[in-house]
Design a protein around this nucleic acid. Structure first.
Lengths: 344, 344
DNA sequence: AATTAGCACTCGGCAACAAGGAGTGCTAAC
DNA sequence: GTTAGCACTCCTTGTTGCCGAGTGCTAATT
């Protein structure tokens, strides 16, 4: 079931044209293109074959053709001509890193914003996984007799905090001793493993030094129980409203609701392995995304994958351009973060 | 230009009916209502007068009438029958406070969510102003030779943190001394006044104890410069998509873009004094809000105003119900926060 | 003098219909 | 194998006519 060169050419031109115009492509308008040197009748025959093979579809009996999901898939896998970014795009992306920055939440937020502005689609950035960072220091600060704040600082400078109530039987001295023991034992431990480590190693020590040790232990362990979700950042949530395929309010509605849900997006994006991934339409397994494609790229520090950047657009999206942008940004982002992490 | 009782009645019924149905109200359908005991012809005459006075409008020459902004304003100011919340609403709102909570970000987020679910409009909650909270403790935690995290804990348990680079001439001992001085001098000072206080009181002390004191000073002051914006929380951003007045994509678009902007909303909401405020349509001074009304209420701890809760809906919104809900929630919220603050 | 019944008129919405255009599929000629 | 030609399909647009809901005005009624 191999396609002939001419079929490939026609498929490519159809997809390109439809991406540009959002209008079904007819044989006559194709025949007028430079790249194409045969008559509309020939094209009609080829299109008929391409339709039989499932790469293109008609919207009604006598309409032009529109790429099917299979068509987009083939286009992305085999026909994509890598687009070179123009100088303007490059410098806009690089402007993200212009200022000296310490907190990558800022960088990441700015990345999302700029990505959505450059593409006019919706951008999504999954922040770095905090849970693999290593604990630098724990601090417990009493607010009053009954409550205190526990602060966890990671080696990357990320700060988590939890408020908890101090067990009645615990006094200030106990608290201080506990903090010392915790810092002693837990520094350098990934946040993910804290709970484990607390019960396995710290419990014993606490018992030796603190009166009501197990109450204290559970209080601290409880503060840590809440899983630390990677944060999602969005840019251009409303951009989809300008896409002609979303003239229909109910489609927009279900899409925006899904986006605001965050959970779906989180699951779609998180599990990705390194590199660029393109998911087209129903490949996303979500009815709200039927007319959407999601392109993801990962960024990392050194060898370690940190997070994901992604673009959500209509299936009729500028795959080539978006992929180039994502590749470029993820490379830059990784370089900057690698440097940042080396200092730690 | 006082309205007769009959005119008031008619105006009220028109507004009520339009709020319910979103359809222009005609004289005949009005005459069928229970409350109304005169003929459609009489109603037509009265409606004509009400239109001359600017309280109602026609959508075209032979259509029924629709409330004008002036009509809504009058309705809200004079004709609103305070609605009693049903038991279900009450218990749903109270469920917000069911769990024991320490961090009001959680409470507030939940409030926004529930408010939007109860009303089917968009809810907005302005978080408590952090900047008036008093500093409880400063902690500086070095990450490596060049960078450190400064952590500021307030008496309410709020934690702010900033990463900064350590001046080359400063060593660990200096850092520790600085932190001690800062805690000594700044505990109990509102975050707003920290900068001032640092330059006026702390500078001198630093000079006595630290070698390169002014570099240190500026580094610390810089970390504090960034103003601490109250956070905005939203619920039901997409609810407006279901409102019939927003069938028009371009209206939806400009509204959602304005909401995502956050700045406009922030300015609309922040400056409000205590109590319920209703802003109708163009009273909001924002073209994107032409068909919207914004109802705000404040919440406080003790005497101190902390933040704002608001509902953004179409001008054709259920004013009575929304006002009752906001009143109720703001009262509950204030009570809970007052208790929380008393412990501090 | 206030209210109401009656009636002509207006306008939006809907369905039916026609014309035009863009497109296809098929057949026959090149 | 390619292309010209043609009949056919279906969407789009515009026109027309009609119905229903509503108004404003006038004249009759209370």
């Amino acid at each position: 079931m191999l396609l002939t060169d001419r079929q490939l050419l026609i498929l490519q031109v159809i997809v390109d044209d439809f991406i540009r115009s959002a209008q079904p492509v007819g044989s006559r308008s194709l025949s007028k293109k430079e790249e194409i040197s045969f008559s509309s009748a020939t094209i009609r025959n080829e299109m008929s074959d391409l339709e039989d093979l499932g790469f293109i579809e008609k919207t009604h009996t006598s309409s032009g053709r529109v790429p099917s999901e299979k068509g987009y898939r083939y286009y992305v896998d085999h026909l994509l001509s890598p687009q070179v970014l123009n100088q303007q795009d490059v410098s806009i992306i690089q402007s993200i890193f212009a200022e000296k920055i310490f907190e990558f939440e800022k960088i990441i937020q700015r990345s999302a914003k700029i990505l959505s502005e450059l593409t006019n689609y919706t951008s999504i950035v999954l922040g770095p996984a905090v849970s693999i960072n290593k604990l630098k220091r724990i601090q417990i600060i009493p607010l009053n007799k009954e409550t205190a704040v526990a602060i966890f600082v990671t080696d990357t400078g990320h700060v988590e905090n939890r408020t908890f109530s101090i067990p009645a039987s615990v006094d200030a001295g106990d608290l201080e001793k506990t903090v010392n023991i915790l810092n002693d034992r837990l520094a350098g431990v990934p946040l993910d493993d804290l709970n484990d480590k607390i019960y396995k190693e710290v419990a014993m020590l606490l018992r030796q030094h603190i009166h009501n040790y197990d109450l204290m232990l559970h209080t601290i362990a409880d503060s840590l129980k809440m899983p630390i979700h990677e944060k999602l950042f969005f840019g251009g949530k409303t951009n989809m409203l300008s896409q002609p395929e979303f003239h229909d309010i109910s489609k927009i509605r279900s899409l925006l609701m899904m986006i605001d849900q965050e959970e779906w997006i989180y699951n779609l994006i998180r599990k990705n392995s390194a590199g660029i991934h393109v998911k087209i339409g129903r490949e996303n397994n979500n009815s709200a995304m039927e007319n959407c494609s999601l392109i993801t790229a990962t960024y990392s520090a050194g060898q370690e994958k940190l997070g994901t950047i992604a673009i959500l657009g209509p299936t009729r999206m500028e795959y080539s351009r978006v992929i180039s942008l994502l590749k470029f940004l993820s490379k830059d982002l990784s370089e900057v973060l690698t440097k940042l992490y080396q200092n730690i």
